[in-house]
Design a protein around this nucleic acid. Structure first.
Lengths: 197, 197
DNA sequence: TTTTCATTATACCGATTGGTATAATTAATG
DNA sequence: CATTAATTATACCAATCGGTATAATGAAAA
């Protein structure tokens, strides 16, 4: 099996379970069935391993969103729907990475883990901001509140995923495996109600 | 000055800034201008210090919510308004603790920091669940979804605070100091729209 | 077969981790 | 003044931290 990929998998699993700082390099290499120099050969440092995990996960997320987003259409509701669909699908398919991403998003701003996600989050925000920008004709004058909308929208989706996964966590189930289109549309409706008023 | 209180202040400041695991006991006592045995005299362990911080902060939050909540009234909108007002006021007055609480809420479920907040969060959820329970006559049959509502509502409020503090973070401002009642009512309206439909 | 180069195992490093034993200090009480 | 009990400073501990020097391995190319 591919060592590099295996290390990434194992480390993501442990980071999302116990947190980046609480997991030692020693634990990782033992779980992965390798030794320390192998890990340092591939990633250079523990922080480098974290960066590689984020690079990997966010590129999948970008790809997922990119495959859904349509540059031609500028219908707000349809755009929001596609982003939500992509986002929620990703949250189900890569649930481990998603919950890890969430924990980093809310982690201490002065810490190393946050420093590592920050550029990825900014890039993600920017993509959503651009989408709102394109749809500005339908939303009226946003007075530079696109950024606030983007953060609100992503937070809204995150909250949805978190609530459901948390509820299932207490009940020892997995995340629902299928994203229902009607549920997503109802979600969009709820979010837009807060905007258009 | 009171040593115990000073340690709590300094530790909360550092934990919220860099994260629990990333802050060493040594750093804390140096910042607080004391020595290690003093800290261990009061709190027994680093984890004990964390527990004391949470005990302190959550008791303030409970008190804040308790002072707003009205057991007699069972009007949903009014109850939700009071909880929101209390919550947001607390987020402004104890912004440091609030952001630290948020980071713990989303932190790794298998980690020690989460283990420490878990009971406090459950208690908080329970208070909100009870509120929905009392208001069930107005919301129709909730089919045991009170728990989901409670989580959704708290997450909704958290997201609101997070979005604003994050936006201000990028702009190097403080959180707005005054909670506007109209903003809160509009927030409730937005949340309820998602429920009653 | 020999050379080459990516990959891995053994063993180690200084620094820091959370935590503590012990005695000195301080303030209040008898 | 003597005694007690809370509080603090000095100095230390084993264990673990992230990271590395060095040489052995493996397979592929010459």
């Amino acid at each position: 099996m591919d060592n590099r990929g295996n290390i990434l998998d194992v480390a993501l699993h442990m980071f999302s379970d116990k947190g980046y700082d609480a997991v030692s390099v020693q634990e990782i290499v033992e779980s992965a069935g390798i030794t320390k120099p192998t890990l340092y050969y591939y990633f250079g440092s523990k922080y480098g391993l974290l960066e590689a995990i984020l690079e990997d996960g966010f590129s999948k997320l970008d790809q997922m969103i990119g495959s859904y987003i349509d540059e031609d259409s500028n219908d707000v509701r349809e755009q929001l729907f596609k982003v939500a669909k992509a986002f929620l699908t990703f949250a189900v398919e890569e649930s481990r990475f998603f919950s890890f991403m969430l924990s980093l998003m809310y982690s201490a701003k002065g810490g190393e883990p946050y420093k590592a996600v920050k550029p990825h989050l900014h890039k993600l925000y920017q993509a959503i901001i651009d989408m709102f920008e394109r749809s500005s004709s339908q939303l009226g004058n946003m007075n530079g509140r696109q950024e606030q909308f983007a953060m609100g929208y992503l937070g809204f989706l995150n909250q949805y995923v978190f609530t459901f996964s948390e509820r299932n966590f207490f009940r020892d189930n997995d995340l629902r495996e299928h994203i229902n289109d009607d549920d997503v549309r109802s979600l969009i409706q709820q979010f837009m109600y807060g905007i258009v008023s």
